[in-house]
Design a protein around this nucleic acid. Sequence first.
DNA 1: AGCTTGTTTTGAGCATTGTTCAATAGTAAA
DNA 2: TTTACTATTGAACAATGCTCAAAACAAGCT
Lengths: 209, 209
Amino acid sequence: MVGEHKATAERRQALRAALISAAGRRIAEDGLPALTARAAASDVGCSVGAIYNVFDDLDGLIIAVNSKTLAHLDREIAKSLAAVADENDPVESLVAIGLAYCRFAAAHPHLWSALFEQGVKPDRDVPAWHMDEHIRLFAHVLTFLKQLDPKQEDEQAWSRARLMFSAVHGVVSLGMHELFIAVPPDEIETQVALLVRATARGLYDRSPW
Amino acid sequence: MVGEHKATAERRQALRAALISAAGRRIAEDGLPALTARAAASDVGCSVGAIYNVFDDLDGLIIAVNSKTLAHLDREIAKSLAAVADENDPVESLVAIGLAYCRFAAAHPHLWSALFEQGVKPDRDVPAWHMDEHIRLFAHVLTFLKQLDPKQEDEQAWSRARLMFSAVHGVVSLGMHELFIAVPPDEIETQVALLVRATARGLYDRSPW
DNA sequence: AGCTTGTTTTGAGCATTGTTCAATAGTAAA
DNA sequence: TTTACTATTGAACAATGCTCAAAACAAGCT
């Protein structure tokens, strides 16, 4: 009979959770390269092999951490949206999203950079459900773009949401790269706010020309 | 006497050059992780140790490759600027820069991504001269921003040049990440053009409000 | 309890990585 | 040639991700 011991599943689940949070701590503190199989195992008090009973790969563990990170980031964005003063000004909400993104990256630089530090990999790509988690991030943006122009097609709105999100991401990303050299974090925030307002205006304001 | 054999210096120089171009080829074809010390050595027909006579580090070799890549990219941008139809429309020049960036990334994805694939490193950071090479990239942008508004302060112009450059970078960067999933390259180009025009308008057009 | 059967966990072992450094080969002056 | 120094080498080292025969375990049966 194809037996499966009852307690096994929950034990595996517990190990998964423990590994994920230990790995998260390690990445947050010392960066992605500090997450080695042996380190993770000893953090949790299991054998190296145990990791591979529960994840396909170390990449699998990293993706699980990233998943948690995305959820956290999503909550932060929601929080900062709730604090927007003028409910009727979509641009202010967009700015709030950008600033939340900014602040999250500054607060958790290693976790944040782990989200994108998967070089251009030829075959082994991330699972679809994790892609979705990324995409869900700029669903927030979509909401307010539709407020800015309710008539626009869904496809265009998505496309522009990704555009704005990507642009903000670029500013934060390059800002962090040179962070330890030149650009102070609060200036990054200023620039992100400026960028969001400029693109919103450039994309949606149809003033007389 | 502190002798230094005459032929040595040039031989080292030759080895450096050979290593750089072999490494460039390897990265371009199979991505950064394919560049291992042993592979590079055998490509060039030298010993592993020889690499370390000529570079501090494998990172040193990578930086040298990146340096060549940046020079190449810079030439491409210059070329595409030379082909701009309307000399008197700075926005068209800015668009041209963005598109050149786009096309370069699409044409040499591995070389391009090697430029940014240095995770957030705590201590060991890239030398200043290489940072300068990066910065020189958006000096191009600066030129045309000053044409858009000759009155603006230098500092603001630099800041906005970096802003625009970063924004474009973000769109290309996220676009490439999901490239193998969804976003076709020509759509990225469309989006970059849209973004450049929108930000230029948003940042500089002082229409009656 | 003891035995049997299938499952789960383990950690020594493998291949591969970047990097070093005693030993070898090389160079040029004496 | 001899001598004195320099340059190159590649076996050896530590650390990596990952595997898989073996050990430990769990549950049912007599």
